[in-house]
Design a protein around this nucleic acid. Structure first.
Lengths: 366, 366
DNA sequence: TAGCCTTTCTAAACCGGTTCAGGTTTGGTC
DNA sequence: GACCAAACCTGAACCGGTTTAGAAAGGCTA
């Protein structure tokens, strides 16, 4: 039963500093506050604050002296005090509303977050993460993040049709950045990776290989990128002059991808190619094809979306569309910071995801 | 170029409330602070605080009245003010030091975090997440989380040999919980899922199937669970009376798992079974076996570790060891909260991970 | 030399809670 | 009725910054 004894200064915030300036015993390193710096520099608290946040009205030499003293004493302004005073938290939020299973098999967020962090950390901002099971909890979470003043801005991922979070956040006055362009009006800047070209390229690639019966295992249509990918699929077929292809809607989960594949392949005239809306489903589809004795890519070509690490190492390696979640995270973080700094920020369009051709696609024999 | 106009009350913290009690226009909903509640309830601020934090010394009826008024006015104490005053942040931290690639293919953290959240959210605590690229940054991150008072406690994952974070955090006086038992002295409670039995069971299972040449694709030996798993592998072989097996050390990445598999299978007398230290590597191994024309499970049996969602849907489905990261997250969060509450907490031993037998293992023909 | 800006700086209010020393009641005991 | 302790409550200090009103000093103009 380990016992934790809080360290020196943290112990009791209200602890009297025993006596007056009691012998400078090496006991409690006295906390360095703005007061101490001010006294030592022979100026008032206020002026130290001004010097720190370099605002006008401080004589140049005075400013230098103050900063010098601050450095000597190793003073770092207290984030908490500053938070109370400025009504800001210097942290950003990310709320992920996903079934843990789906989340677990989708490597998007870890990479995205790594990208976000690479921008936030040097700025001294933190990321507050929430993972919630459903939409209701999600909205409640946003409300309480705001009510508690935990964050100064948020990232909006997994955009949905008529996304309720947008009016909610706009109403709460919380700055936000959307990952992708929402379908309704939005006061927030959007950081977008267009996924249409990647899907269209997949279809074009398959058509060029001679495939005519191409099916699509789509993600959830309530998710904007889900429905946009399947829209792209449909119009790519049309452009190629092919009849409408089969589309099976799923929830993006591995299990659903597997099921959908079984349904498609056990028909009388199964497709010769399947375009999946994400990689995990494509990998599950690959497994199902094996199980059914359908050879990939000989009997069936498949393509995924995201280019997760696995793609290169399954057999055959997966033809897929490569987005760059880390770059996306970086761009989103920069944009959100700019928005908070300036009150406005431009939309950012990142390079469209591109098709990476590997071994899971081959000429049609159908 | 969207422009965000901060909402009403958030606008300017210093904004005078225009005039005195200027016409109760529906303009600015006046902020409800503890002062307002106190005045309305006819008591002092202090007493409201006491009532809220139900501490002794408040007459029962008074307490009820105060809480009643608070509810009527919809008062929620300001987290920021409370933070400054109590020197606590009501948030917990998780710092993940991993190469983004490895992180992305490992579903442990998303599930773990979902578990953590399920405990924290109802308690009104937040999770501050950092993803950092290397150990140096990691230690710096801990220091600054403490210096900024961002968190009141942290989770220590991916324990290493002689982990430097333990003395660091002990020195900083920050409560922590370790995921697994560290190899050195630690003042922190450990929440553990013993992974030895799972690995031993894997080996036993393979031995029972008649395998004699069993190899191990291990994770990084600097990671405690990496070396423990390979230790378990070695002693399981010994117990079975088999000669020492081949072990290839990796960094847990999919790429390394693939490489290791190629090395093992292209030898003169390749193993008839491979025990992988995690699922992603096992799945990559499966792909490599396919590529080399080695049939699984006919020519080669393989086992993984973690039981990620994919296991069930690759072909053949993967025999693996099922830990329960979500449960682990829950337990770790509860333990950390208990530690912070009471100053001490007991170690927790969760049920050991258990073997799940699927199609990737079969009797040896070697 | 008075009058008026500017620049530099200080003092004090403020953010919104928590906590502590001490003041009033209340009730019980002898 | 005096004394005392316990219960309840208030006022003020405190956490550590930011911000504003205005004081002090210096420079310029008329």
């Amino acid at each position: 039963m380990p016992v934790i004894i809080p360290a020196g200064t943290t112990a009791n915030p209200r602890a009297k500093t025993s006596g007056k300036s009691s012998a400078k015993s090496a006991a409690n390193p006295p906390k360095v506050t703005i007061e101490v710096v001010a006294k030592r520099a022979g100026v008032s608290k206020g002026l130290v604050s001004f010097a720190l946040n370099n605002r006008p009205g401080v004589a140049p030499e005075t400013r230098v002296r103050i900063l010098q003293v601050a450095k000597e004493l190793g003073w770092k302004p207290s984030l908490r005090a500053r938070s109370l005073s400025t009504q800001r938290s210097y942290a950003l939020g990310l709320v992920i509303a996903r079934n843990p299973d789906v989340l677990a098999s989708d490597p998007f967020f870890p990479s995205f977050i790594a990208g976000v962090e690479s921008i936030l950390a040097p700025e001294g901002r933190a990321l507050v993460l929430s993972v919630v099971p459903d939409e209701e909890t999600e909205l409640r979470t946003y409300r309480s993040l705001v009510a508690d003043g935990r964050v100064d801005g948020v990232f909006l991922s997994d955009l949905r049709h008529g996304d309720p979070r947008i009016p909610l956040l706009a109403g709460l006055g919380l700055p936000a950045v959307t990952l992708g362009r929402p379908d309704g009006p939005s006061p927030f800047p959007a950081v977008t990776v267009d996924d249409t070209p990647g899907v269209m390229a997949s279809v074009a690639h398959l058509v060029a290989l001679g495939h005519r019966r191409i099916a699509h295992v789509a993600g959830s249509s309530t998710l904007l990128h889900g429905s946009r990918r399947s829209g792209a699929f449909t119009s790519a077929l049309r452009e190629a002059g092919l009849p409408e292809g089969q589309t099976v809607e799923t929830d993006f989960s591995v299990a659903a991808g597997s099921d959908a594949t079984r349904r498609l392949l056990t028909q009388d005239t199964p497709p010769t190619a399947i375009v999946y809306a994400n990689d995990p489903m494509a990998i599950a589809g690959l497994g199902m094809a094996h199980e059914l004795g359908v050879r990939v890519p000989d009997d069936l070509s498949i393509t995924g979306y995201d280019d997760i690490d696995f793609c290169r190492y399954v057999y055959p390696p997966l033809t897929t569309v490569s987005a760059a979640p880390m770059v996306w995270g970086r761009a989103a973080a920069s944009t959100l910071l700019a928005l908070m700094e300036n009150g406005s920020a431009n939309d950012v369009d990142l390079p469209a995801a591109r098709l990476v051709i590997r071994g899971s696609t081959a000429p049609s024999r159908g």
